[in-house]
């Protein structure tokens, strides 16, 4: 079987059969084929082969595949797969445990601050009135400075309830002993600690 020596044209024949050539180029190949028996025969084989291969190929359910792929994509974005990488981010479970521990730290720190405030108030209560200068405020204010970070501590005035003030020294000592081992660091100020200052005995 003879073959056309124009390789450029022969290379373009399958693209002409496919219909993917630009109009001008398609016309150029058609013109060549019209005068070339070999290329005309090859083009006929290509067109037939293309029809047969396309028709013989299995039909897929495009709508079903699109739906399945869409669900998979939506599922992936709604619930990302947990991946633990060496040296990378910690898995969700570890983050959750850390969150619980942080909450406990915050509670302990808040209790610690309340205890310190109570002790201070006790001391104020036992201090002779001569220590109160003429410019002393009407209310006793305890500024939380440690262990809260500066941003959280700014203006954080404690409110001390009667029940806490009424604790005995022994009760307070016991609580302080329990908290001695605590070395947590406060990163968030509990909302309860933002309450306004209250009156304390002897302040009026």
């Amino acid at each position: 079987m003879t073959e056309c020596l124009n390789e450029e044209m022969r290379d373009l024949l399958p693209l002409l059969a496919h219909g993917s050539l630009e109009a001008a180029e398609a016309e150029r190949v058609r013109m060549h084929s019209a005068g070339c028996a070999e290329c005309a025969a090859e083009l006929a084989v290509l067109e037939t082969s293309r029809l047969v291969l396309r028709a013989s190929a299995p039909r897929v359910d495009v709508a079903a595949i699109a739906a399945a792929v869409g669900q998979s994509a939506a599922g992936a974005s709604a619930a990302p797969v947990l991946r633990v990488e060496r040296g990378g981010a910690k898995p969700v479970a570890a983050v959750a445990r850390r969150s619980v521990w942080r909450s406990r730290q915050l509670l302990a720190a808040a209790a610690s601050l309340l205890i310190v405030a109570s002790l201070s108030l006790r001391l104020l209560d036992r201090t002779p009135s001569s220590n109160e200068g003429p410019s002393a405020p009407d209310t006793a204010t305890v500024i939380a400075t440690d262990p809260a970070p500066p941003a959280a501590a700014a203006g954080s005035e404690l409110s001390v309830g009667d029940a806490l003030v009424d604790l005995t020294s022994d009760d307070l000592s016991a609580l302080l002993t329990e908290l001695e081992g605590f070395d947590g660091k406060i990163t968030i100020e509990p909302a309860a600690m933002r309450q306004p200052v209250v009156d304390t005995p002897g302040s009026r």
Binding site: L53, A57, P58, V60, V62, A66, V69, G70
Partner: peptide
């Protein structure tokens, strides 16, 4: 976030992929 775009891509390329697989 446009899921229709994924559907369009599937519609455009699914059948050629089936032919290629065959």
């Amino acid at each position: 976030g446009d899921q229709r775009a994924a559907t369009a891509l599937v519609g455009r390329h699914a059948q050629p992929l089936a032919r290629f697989a065959a």
